[in-house]
Design a protein around this nucleic acid. Structure first.
Lengths: 203, 203
DNA sequence: CGCCCCGGTTAACGCCTGTTAACTGGCTCC
DNA sequence: GGAGCCAGTTAACAGGCGTTAACCGGGGCG
């Protein structure tokens, strides 16, 4: 009735589609993946996807809005967790690094296919992203009192670029393994770099 | 005869097409721009482009190969310009920052639409990129003797992500103006961040 | 038992796109 | 002044795409 079927798996088909779509979109781009491809990848064929999503763009919208909301929520949680802006900054960096390393496909799709969203969803994602960036800007300005907001914004975007470089790492000894247990060496390295860059700012 | 027509303008139509294509591809993605759109944007209509390029993919190929060659050439020049690895590193950072700030569309297209290249061109671009990265890796290892090649590669990609974040900067006081004369404050800020990150590496 | 909705199928439609064909005005060069 | 190429044009084609329509098996429930 009100509850989704198979609550234990959490509406598995929908989530399976979103997961697979993220991988395919990351590899071939939104327009490079057809509905038929997507269906084939989850084991059904073609128009079956319309039983779960009203259209291809809606699927992308749900994916990108979900990412933005997740990042914003995580950012807000870290921002409220401490009064020391340096601690907050370190937590933000670690959070972003962890996400970027765990979900590189989402990182790729988010900034590559934003333009393919329908206008309304695009505005929504942009707003969420802006709010997330403002958390970083505020924190940076509290760490560096003389820093202008413009400079802080550039620095924040730079840090994102640094931390989100994970998709460019060829799978190898350091970056390898989706194993979530132990701390990744790559995440540690990138976090360290980001903190060094962000602590050295003028002001 | 052997010389291209209008050597003074350097085959202006071809270059105009490439420039406009870069802007459109950066905004809408390779598959999001039709040949007709492209023609309209340069003032001709549709199939006229086939007088200058054998096809849409070939156009993209020429663009991406050109970028990779330009970056590699610039990188090799900086690498040979000094014996002090720190000076080389600083020069590499400045070179990349300058390019990223001057040609943000090319930055976007290069890593977003690599997958849309025909196989042969893609391999060629990948090879050029790998060679460019190796310059950075070598330089980093000379600055930090204990650094492994894997770590250096991750650090290099991270630095690229940081420096290439320029397309995400909303046009504003710091990032504004294609005016090439005075040094951009944004470029200086990003270069400083990148150097701080790269000098702090372990090893 | 029979109803009905959920999630799937295949067939078909219409649009858009890359590409080719056929044709044409103008500029250069002999 | 005519030949020929260069850079355009419009018309047409074939293929692929997102989307819709029509149909159907199966499991839960009254």
């Amino acid at each position: 009735m009100a509850a989704s079927p198979a609550a234990g798996t959490g509406g598995s088909r929908r989530e399976q589609i979103l997961t697979v779509a993220a991988q395919l979109f990351a590899k071939h781009g939104f327009h490079g993946v057809s509905i038929a491809d997507l269906g084939a990848a989850v084991g059904v064929s073609g128009p079956a996807l319309y039983r779960h999503f009203p259209g291809k763009e809606a699927l992308l919208a749900e994916m990108l809005v979900g990412i933005s909301e997740h990042l914003l929520a995580g950012g807000q949680a870290r921002a409220c967790a401490s009064d020391d802006p340096r601690e907050v900054l370190a937590a933000l960096v670690e959070f972003q690094a962890d996400f970027a390393l765990r979900e590189p496909e989402l990182i790729v799709v988010q900034d590559r296919d934003l333009a393919n969203l329908p206008a309304e969803a695009r505005r929504r994602v942009r707003r969420l992203q802006r709010t997330y960036v403002e958390i970083w800007v505020d924190t940076l300005q509290r760490v560096h009192p003389g820093l202008t907001a413009e400079s802080a914004r550039i620095a924040a975007h730079g840090a994102f670029g640094l931390l989100n470089s994970t998709p460019h790492i060829a799978p190898g000894p350091l970056g390898a393994g989706r194993s979530e247990g132990r701390p990744h060496a790559a995440a540690a390295l990138l976090s360290r770099m980001a903190l060094a860059a962000l602590m050295d700012l003028p002001g």
